[in-house]
Amino acid sequence: MSKVARVLFLGGLGRSGTTLVERLLGELPGMCALGEVVHLWQRDIRDDERCGCGERFSGCDFWRKIGERAFGGWDKVDVDRVHALRDAVERTRHIPRLATTTAPGSAVTEYASYYARVYAAAAEVSGAPVVIDSSKHSALAHVLRWAPDIDLRVVHMVRDARGVAYSWTKRVARPETDGAGEMTRYSPGRSALLWNAHNAAFGLLARRGVPVRRIRYEEFLASPRAGLIRLADFAGLTLHTADLDFLRAGHADLRAGHSAAGNPMRFTVGRLALRRDDAWVHALPRSQRRLVGAVCSPLLHAYGYPLNPEAR
């Protein structure tokens, strides 16, 4: 497929609100939300986990059509090859090289081509001019910028590092595994280091000429309607008043989607509350708040977050 796919890539460290924003964007006309495509190869093609619609990946007609258009069927995809390419180019440690090179190399372009084929096929199947990938991984975004058949636009999701740290400590089941697995957990110190690394990487991506729009989780939830209008404009779409009728006072009414992987929120159908999760202000122990605040203080300050959470 040689057609250029317009991709809205939601990036940032996990637990920063990307799934929420993706679900809301997916309700807009002209947008097709795919979930975290970075996990498609293992969790869906190989492990046959559940799509956001509730069906097993192999039983989802939407994804079956995408596989046929992109590769002639998912059974034609060499998952081991995709994994080998990922290990060679899509790691945080590779970002400096990806950001500074003037010639990406064959492994980078080959790896990006797998994603480009999925995006183009999804746009064709859905009829949407914009596809949304909420993979989040900063290294993947740096890879995708080298794909000539991807019109990449990156939404950099930022949330207070202390709220992110608290979220990573919680036990969260993965419904797509039918109770067999949980989402990864990190210590506050570990999540603080990851928060710094991923957010800095998206800042570097912007300096390399990729269109990047940074939004703060807290500000988005304060006015989701205005936030969606701004993001649609960034994606090259014009909204009409009726397009936002699914937004109500304090909640959104969601249809079933076809998210390939991601936060359990992707399975929500019907009412979704739109409220900030600030439980960390009291639930995260003070010593851990101070640790995360100290490690992340330069970027917290740059993004406009108070270093003293009580000042919020």
Results as ranks from 00 to 15, higher is better:
A141Y: 06
S138K: 12
Y119I: 08
A180C: 06
I132E: 02
V155L: 15
R64T: 02
D133G: 11
C53W: 10
R153I: 07
R171A: 05
E176C: 14
P96L: 04
A103Q: 09
V79C: 06
F57M: 13
S134P: 10
S58Y: 10
T109E: 12
V89M: 01
K65Y: 02
K76P: 07
R174Q: 09
G59K: 12
W146D: 08
T92F: 14
A88C: 00
F57W: 15
I45T: 12
R117P: 09
L85D: 03
E124C: 11
R162H: 06
V172Q: 11
V143S: 07
D78Q: 01
D48M: 10
I95Q: 00
R91S: 11
A161P: 14
V154P: 00
V77N: 04
V164S: 09
A84P: 03
V130R: 14
G163A: 01
A84C: 06
C53V: 06
V89C: 00
A147M: 09
C60H: 04
G127M: 01
D44F: 03
A84N: 04
A173N: 11
R171W: 07
A165D: 00
A147C: 12
R81F: 08
S58K: 15
D75V: 00
V77G: 11
W146S: 07
G73P: 02
H137K: 14
A107H: 14
A139I: 00
G105L: 08
A139C: 03
G179V: 05
E49V: 13
V125Q: 12
G59S: 13
E110P: 07
C53Y: 05
R50E: 09
A99Q: 09
D87A: 13
D78P: 01
R56N: 13
A141N: 07
E49R: 15
R153M: 05
V155F: 04
A128W: 09
S167Q: 10
P96Y: 00
T169L: 00
V82R: 04
W146T: 05
D87N: 14
G72V: 07
S126R: 11
V125W: 07
K65R: 15
D61C: 11
P96Q: 03
I95V: 06
G72P: 04
I95M: 01
A123G: 07
L144T: 10
R69A: 10
V118T: 09
Q42L: 15
A180Y: 09
V131W: 01
Y114D: 05
T100F: 13
V89I: 06
A165F: 06
D44V: 10
D133K: 12
V172T: 04
V108A: 04
R91G: 10
T100Y: 10
G73T: 07
G59P: 08
A103H: 08
V143E: 08
T92M: 14
T177R: 08
V108F: 06
R159F: 02
L85K: 00
R93I: 09
R153P: 08
P104G: 03
W74N: 02
R64D: 04
G72T: 03
